[in-house]
Design a protein around this nucleic acid. Structure first.
Length: 864
RNA sequence: GCGAAAGUGGCGGAACUGGUAGACGCGCUGGGUUUAGGUCCCAGUGGGGUUAGUCCCCCGUGCGAGUUCGAGUCUCGCCUUUCGCACCA
C-alpha cells in the first residue's frame, strides 16, 4: 500500500472499476425492491455549479446507501436543455443556441463523471432532443383533443423599443434591460393548460404526502388558494344598463362597500375613456410597468373615477366606479367591490382619495372599533352591524343568509374560487419546444397529427435576439391544414421549459420507448426520493404533480403522485467582495483574487485585491452568483483536493435543508480527515496478518471502543437512512476515528478490533467518499468492491452497558453527577442523588418539595 | 405587499420525543517533530469572576413576554435574514 494518499489516482481507478463492471446500470428486477432516487436535472449553463454538486452529492449518498440496503437503485441524470440563457449566449457570442447547449452538456457530463456519481448514463435524457420533445408534443395534442388545452389572451411584458416580449427577469425597475424603455403590459393570445380542473385534487392529495416537507405543502396550499365566496352583480346606474360582476369571500361586509374598482382593460373603463381624454391618458399610464404580482402589490395605489355609478344590490345605495392600477383583467372578473372598513388595500385607496369608509361588521363582544383610522379585518368573533335585515349575525350566518338572498333574487351565486390560474405554456421564444399546432383560416387551431410529429426546431439558425427565427422563416411557418388541406401556418410560439421538466422523471424509466412511456414506467414510479432546491417549492413541484395526474388520466401511469418523498436542499452561499470605482461603477472581485486580513478572532478586518492592493468591501454571506463573481468552481476544488473531499465537505458543512456557507478552510479540514483515515489504514495493514476478531478477549478500553463502534453504526444508519443529517453522520464517524486513534493496540484482540472498526468506517463512508472506500476496502484485505457490500450490522450485545451517568439538578440547575446501575430503581436513584455531597450543599436551608426522576437521564430536585 | 422558512461561541454547525447547551470541524493560542516552510502530532479554547489547586460560582441560544419541576426546543408579539410570487431555471 502506498504511504501517500493520492486522490487523483484512487479516483481514476475506482471510476474505471465502476465503468467496466457497469455497476450503476440497472434494469427492472422482480426479485429486489426498487428504489428510484431522482435529483432535479440541471440547466446546462456551461459549468457545474456548487449548488448542483450539493444536490447531486445528496442524491448519490442516498442512492449508494439504499444500494447497500439491498435495493435495486435507479439514479438517472439528464439536461433541462431549453431556455433563455442559450439565447442570451447566442446574442453575446454569435453562436447558435443549439451548438452552445450541446458543448455545455458535453463539458458538464464530464464534470459530473469526475465527481463519481453513480448514474445510469444509458438513461440520459436531453430535453432539446426531438427524441424527447416529440412525446411532449404528442401529449399536448392529446390534451387538446380532451379539451384540457385552450387559447386565451393574457398579459405579457412588452418592450416598445425592441418590439419584443420580455421575461420578468429582463425587466429591471419597470424598464427593458437592453432598451431601457418603460415596459408596457400587452395582451396576446396564448395557450393554456387547465390546471384549475385539477386544483381540488392537487390540494387534497397534499394530505397523502407525509414524505414531503410541511413548508412545501403549506406553500402549495396557499398558492392554490381555494376560497369559498359569492359572485354577484352590481347593476350599473347609467341608461345603458349592464352590471359589474365581482367575486368576494366576504359577503358579510357588502353593506360596507363604498366604491368599486375595475382594471384598466375592463370594458366599462374603456367605454368611459372614449369620451374622456384625461381618463384615456390615465389608462395608458397605468398599463405601464411590470406584470409580476410583486410589482403590482408594491405599486403606489392609483385610481381615477370613471364618472359611472353602480348600485349596491343589498342597500340600493349608489356608489362610484373607479379604475385602479392594482386591479388586473384576467385575475378574477377584473372588477372588485371595495370595503375599505375591512380590507387593508381598499382602506389605503379610500384614505388616499377621500372615499367614504363605512363599518359593516364589528367585534362580537360589542367593543367599539374605529375603522376610519385603520381597517378592522378580523373574520372570527364578528357580528354584522348596520346591515339592514342581516344585522346581528356572525360570519357563517351572515355569509349564508346573504348568499341565499342573492341566489334567490338571481343576482349572484356561491362559488369556489382558486388563486391558482391556468398554466400559460406559450413563450414567444426560439429556443424551446415548438407548440404542435397549425392555424388554419377556415378550421381554426388544429393539432399536428401524430404521424407528422415531431415538429422539429431548426437548429442551424442565426439568432439576433430581435425576433424568433421561427417567426421570420416563411418555409418553416408554412403548413397544410391537417383538417382541410388548405394553406395554413404553424404556431411559432414554443413551450414554457417547465413543460419539459414536468415529465422527464418518467421518461428516464424508459428512455428508448417508442411511445410517451411504456410499462417500465410503472415499475419504477413513483419516485422514492426526489431532491432539489427549495426555490422550486411551488411552481415546478406543482406542475410536476399536475403532469403526473394528466399522464395518469391518459393511462400512462398508474400512481396518483409522482414522488413519495421530497428533500429540499438549501442554497450555497459564499463571501463576496467589491469595489466602487468612479469610472466603472461597482466591480465584483473573485474571492480567489482577494487577500483577507483577519483579526485575532478570525473576523475579516481588511480585504484587498491581490493584483494591485486596492481596498475592497466584503459583503458577508450571500448567494453564489455570476453577477457577484463569487462562484466557487467545483472543478478546481476537485483538482486540488479530489472529488471525495469535495463530497465530504459539502455533506459535512451543514444539514442538507439549510443554507451552506462555503469556506475553503473547511475543505482543508475534510481533506485532513481523509488523509488521517488513509494513514490509519496504512499503519494498520503494514503490521501484517490480522487475527480474527475476538470480542471476548478485549479489555475495558476495547469493550468501550467496540460499544462506540456499534453505537456509531446504528447512529450513522439512522442519520443517513432516515434523518438525512449527513453532517451528524460524518461527525459520528470522525469521533469513532478519533477514539480509534487513541486506542492502544498491543494485543491480537486489539488488532482484530481495529480491523473491525476500520472495515465498518470504510463501509459507512462508502456513500459519501466512494473512491477512498473502494481503495481502502481492498487494502484491508477484503474481496469484492466496497460499493457492492451490505451496510454493516449492529451487534446488539456490544451495546450493553452496566452503569450509566445521571445528572442531578437542583431547581433545574446542574449540581452533580452520579453513576448508577443501568437498571437501578427510582428510589435508589433518588437516594443517591440526595446523598451527593455537592447536591446537599445547594439544599442547605431549603425544603425539598418534589424530586423528579427521569430514568437513564436525570434527577431534578425541586426545593424552596 | 403577500406566502414560507431560519436566527445557538471568532466561524460552519450539534443538542432527534421539553431533560447535561456548544458534539464534530474550521480558526486561534501554546508546545513538539522537521534543515526551513508546509504536512503531521499533543494540549487549550463561550463570556465574566474566583481558587494553592485539576475546586467552584454567575451569565449565556436575535429581542420581549408566557407555559413548565425544567425551554435552544412549546405559545404569543416584535426585529433581522433568506426563498417564492406564475416568462430565470
Amino acid at each position: 500500500m502506498e504511504k501517500q494518499f493520492d486522490p487523483a489516482r484512487i479516483e481514476t481507478i475506482a471510476q474505471g472499476y465502476w465503468d467496466s463492471a457497469e455497476t450503476f446500470r440497472v434494469t427492472e428486477d422482480p426479485d429486489r425492491p426498487k428504489y428510484y432516487c431522482l435529483s432535479m436535472l440541471p440547466y446546462p449553463s456551461g459549468k457545474l455549479h456548487m449548488k448542483e454538486v450539493r444536490n447531486y452529492t445528496i442524491g448519490d449518498v442516498i442512492s449508494r446507501f439504499q444500494r447497500m440496503q439491498g435495493k435495486n437503485v435507479l439514479q438517472p441524470m439528464g439536461w433541462d436543455a431549453f431556455g433563455l440563457p442559450a439565447e442570451n449566449a447566442a446574442i453575446k457570442r454569435g453562436v447558435a443556441p443549439a451548438g452552445w447547449t450541446y458543448e455545455n452538456i458535453a463539458h458538464m457530463r464530464r464534470q459530473l463523471q469526475r465527481m463519481g456519481y453513480g448514474y445510469d448514463w444509458q438513461r440520459e435524457v436531453t430535453t432539446c432532443s426531438p427524441d424527447y420533445y416529440r412525446w411532449e408534443q404528442l401529449m399536448f395534442t392529446e390534451l387538446f383533443r380532451k379539451g384540457l388545452v385552450y387559447r386565451a389572451k393574457s398579459i405579457v411584458n412588452w418592450d416598445p423599443i425592441d418590439q419584443t416580449v420580455l421575461a420578468n427577469e429582463q425587466v429591471v425597475d419597470g424598464r427593458g434591460w437592453r432598451s431601457g424603455a418603460p415596459v408596457e403590459r400587452r395582451e396576446i393570445p396564448q395557450w393554456f393548460v387547465r390546471i384549475t380542473d385539477y386544483a381540488d385534487e392537487l390540494l387534497e392529495e397534499l394530505d397523502q404526502l407525509p414524505g414531503w416537507p410541511d413548508a412545501v405543502k403549506t406553500m402549495q396550499r396557499n398558492w392554490i388558494g381555494r376560497s369559498e365566496g359569492v359572485e354577484l352583480d352590481f347593476p350599473l346606474a347609467d341608461e345603458a344598463g349592464g352590471a359589474l360582476r365581482v367575486y368576494t369571500t366576504r359577503p358579510d361586509t357588502l353593506y360596507g362597500a363604498t366604491y368599486m374598482a375595475v382594471a384598466a382593460d375592463h370594458p366599462v373603463a374603456i367605454a368611459a375613456a372614449e369620451k374622456n381624454p384625461e381618463l384615456a391618458a390615465f389608462l395608458t399610464e397605468i398599463r405601464q410597468g411590470a406584470v409580476t404580482e410583486e410589482a403590482l402589490e408594491k405599486l403606489e395605489k392609483k385610481g381615477m373615477p370613471l364618472g359611472v355609478e353602480a348600485i349596491n344590490p343589498l342597500s340600493g345605495e349608489r356608489i362610484p366606479v373607479w379604475v385602479a392600477n392594482f386591479v388586473l383583467m384576467g385575475y378574477g372578473t377584473g372588477a372588485i367591490m371595495a370595503v375599505p372598513a375591512h380590507d387593508a388595500r381598499d382602506h389605503e385607496f379610500a384614505t388616499r382619495y377621500g372615499l367614504p369608509i363605512r363599518q359593516a361588521v364589528g367585534p362580537a363582544d360589542g367593543r367599539a372599533v374605529d375603522v376610519q383610522g385603520e381597517p378592522w379585518v378580523a373574520k372570527d368573533g364578528l357580528v354584522t352591524v348596520a346591515a339592514g335585515e342581516f344585522t346581528g349575525l356572525d360570519f357563517p350566518a351572515a355569509f349564508n343568509a346573504i348568499a341565499d338572498h342573492l341566489e334567490a333574487r338571481g343576482i349572484g351565486e356561491r362559488r369556489t374560487n382558486y388563486r391558482l390560474r391556468d398554466w400559460g405554456v406559450s413563450r414567444q421564444r426560439y429556443w424551446g419546444c415548438p407548440i404542435p399546432m397549425i392555424h388554419c383560416p377556415d378550421c381554426g387551431a388544429v393539432p399536428v397529427p401524430e404521424a407528422e410529429l415531431p415538429v422539429t426546431l431548426p437548429e442551424s439558425v442565426t439568432f439576433s435576439g430581435v425576433q424568433s427565427p421561427l417567426k421570420t422563416d416563411p418555409d418553416w411557418r408554412r403548413a397544410a391544414c391537417p383538417q382541410c388541406g388548405g394553406e395554413a401556418e404553424r404556431e411559432t410560439d414554443t413551450f414554457d421549459t417547465f413543460v419539459e421538466s414536468s415529465w422527464y422523471y418518467a421518461r428516464y424509466c424508459c428512455p428508448d420507448a417508442e411511445a410517451i412511456l411504456d410499462r417500465r414506467a410503472d415499475h419504477w414510479l413513483p419516485v422514492d426520493q426526489y431532491i432539489g432546491g427549495i426555490e422550486h417549492a411551488v411552481m415546478h413541484l406543482l406542475y410536476f404533480r399536475f403532469w403526473h395526474k394528466l399522464m395518469r388520466d391518459q393511462g400512462l401511469v398508474a400512481s396518483d403522485e409522482p414522488a413519495t418523498n421530497l428533500l429540499c436542499q438549501g442554497m450555497v452561499l459564499a463571501e463576496a467582495f467589491y469595489r466602487d470605482s468612479e469610472e466603472g461603477g461597482r466591480e465584483w472581485i473573485a474571492p480567489a483574487d482577494v487577500k483577507i486580513e483577519r483579526d485575532g478572532r478570525g473576523r475579516i478586518m481588511r480585504a484587498t485585491r491581490c493584483s494591485d492592493g486596492a481596498e475592497l468591501t466584503a459583503t458577508g454571506w450571500t448567494t453564489m452568483s455570476k453577477s457577484k463573481n463569487n462562484g466557487e468552481d467545483p472543478e478546481s476544488l476537485v483538482d486540488r483536493f479530489g472529488a471525495d473531499t469535495v463530497r465530504l465537505f459539502t455533506m459535512f458543512a451543514a444539514p442538507p435543508d439549510q443554507a451552506l456557507e462555503w469556506q475553503d478552510s473547511g475543505v482543508e479540514g475534510a481533506s485532513r480527515f481523509l488523509r488521517r483515515l488513509y494513514s490509519l489504514v496504512h499503519d494498520h495493514v503494514s503490521g501484517g496478518q490480522v487475527p480474527a476478531p475476538a470480542a471476548a478477549e478485549l479489555d475495558e478500553a476495547g469493550t468501550d471502543l467496540r460499544r462506540k463502534l456499534h453505537q456509531t453504526i446504528g447512529k450513522v444508519g439512522d442519520d443517513v437512512g432516515r434523518r438525512y443529517t449527513f453532517n451528524t453522520a460524518i461527525a459520528a464517524i470522525m469521533e469513532l476515528c478519533n477514539a480509534l486513534g487513541r486506542y492502544d493496540v498491543a494485543t491480537d484482540a486489539a488488532r482484530g478490533l481495529r480491523q473491525e472498526v476500520l472495515e465498518a468506517v470504510v463501509l459507512m463512508l462508502q456513500p459519501i467518499t466512494p473512491h477512498l472506500s473502494h481503495a481502502l476496502w481492498t487494502r484491508l484485505g477484503r474481496d469484492g468492491a466496497a460499493v457492492d457490500q451490505p451496510w454493516p450490522v449492529v451487534d446488539e450485545s456490544a451495546l450493553v452497558q452496566d452503569e450509566v451517568e445521571l445528572v442531578v439538578q437542583v431547581n433545574g440547575k446542574l449540581r452533580g453527577r452520579i453513576r448508577m446501575a443501568a437498571d437501578a430503581a427510582e428510589d435508589t436513584i433518588r437516594e443517591a442523588a440526595l446523598a451527593d455531597a455537592h447536591v446537599q450543599r445547594f439544599l442547605e436551608d431549603l425544603t425539598i418539595r418534589r424530586v423528579i426522576v427521569v430514568p437513564g437521564r436525570l434527577v431534578n430536585v425541586v426545593a424552596g
